[in-house]
């Protein structure tokens, strides 16, 4: 069976600067893969390359065996890929339910209807409520996103991605900026994700990484330093030297 995600010899240059170098990575169905590395290692760049927000200089990206290297972001998304952002990218002026509604309407094609009331799309609204309920956001459906505390806003970030019904989910530091008193909310949700979804998570918090991931890739200066199980990575001297030995809890720009 084809890999959910396969990256082959991917490179990305910004002028003379190589931000991604010879990246090779595969994710299987149900994968729980963490991507770690110091600030500026190119983790978010890699996510942007996978989604198509950026185009690689060379190399290939395959989703479920299909080469999507030249496809734009919307086309890749339709093939079952969703992402969350390190810094919230929500529809801030809208209500919580509308945030999720939009993702469902784009997935089902309802968003192309001009002559029907948005409120008459009962199926979309019912599904949006289901997603919110499953993340414990049901009570907030009618509230404006702006009114919610940051931790709950981070959950909406995930709710939108799940409403896309992805087979591949890219989580870019899902707990970033969330006070520790609320971070268990995010971790619970990540722990309960559908086991069929392949998940790639970028995370700085080693507790989260070691609890959640079955595989870890360490990225340093745009290149993969090493890959392995959490046990292997924890023992790796090289990784200790460049990463684990230092304190890395600040948020990357």
């Amino acid at each position: 069976m084809a890999h959910v995600l396969e990256i082959r010899d991917l490179n990305k240059n910004f002028g003379a600067i190589q931000v991604s170098r010879n990246i090779n990575l595969t994710l299987e169905k149900g994968a729980r893969h963490a991507l770690i590395g110091p600030n500026g290692a190119g983790k978010t760049t890699l996510v942007n390359l996978i989604t198509g927000a950026l185009t690689g200089t060379s190399g290939q990206i395959l989703l479920n065996g299909e080469d999507v290297t030249k496809l734009p972001q919307a086309a890749r998304t339709r093939r079952g890929m969703a992402r969350t952002f390190q810094i919230n990218q929500l529809f801030r002026g809208l209500t919580v339910i509308e945030n999720v509604y939009l993702a469902i309407a784009e997935r089902t094609g309802a968003s192309n209807r001009l002559w029907r009331a948005a409120g008459a799309e009962r199926a979309v609204i019912a599904e949006a409520l289901q997603h919110l309920d499953s993340l414990g956001l049901g009570e907030d459906a009618g509230k404006s996103v702006n009114e919610l505390p940051y931790g709950r806003q981070r959950l909406i970030e995930i709710a939108i991605a799940l409403a896309q019904r992805p087979r591949l989910l890219l989580l870019d530091e899902p707990a970033a900026g969330v006070p520790s008193s609320e971070s268990h909310l995010i971790l619970d949700v990540i722990g309960r994700l559908d086991p069929d979804i392949a998940v790639l998570i970028i995370e700085h918090d080693m507790d989260v990484v070691f609890r959640f991931a079955k595989e870890i890739t360490v990225l340093v200066a745009g290149a993969i330093l090493t890959k392995g199980t959490p046990q292997q990575i924890a023992k790796d001297e090289q990784v200790r030297a460049v990463y684990l030995g230092q304190d890395h809890h600040e948020v990357a720009p």
Binding site: F85, R92, L102, S111, Q164
Partner: peptide, 17 residues
């Protein structure tokens, strides 16, 4: 509704396909 989504956050609109 999709138009307001574009107004509120075009980046996210791209990301939801």
């Amino acid at each position: 509704e999709a138009l307001t989504g574009i107004r509120e956050n075009v980046r996210r609109m791209h990301a939801i396909g």
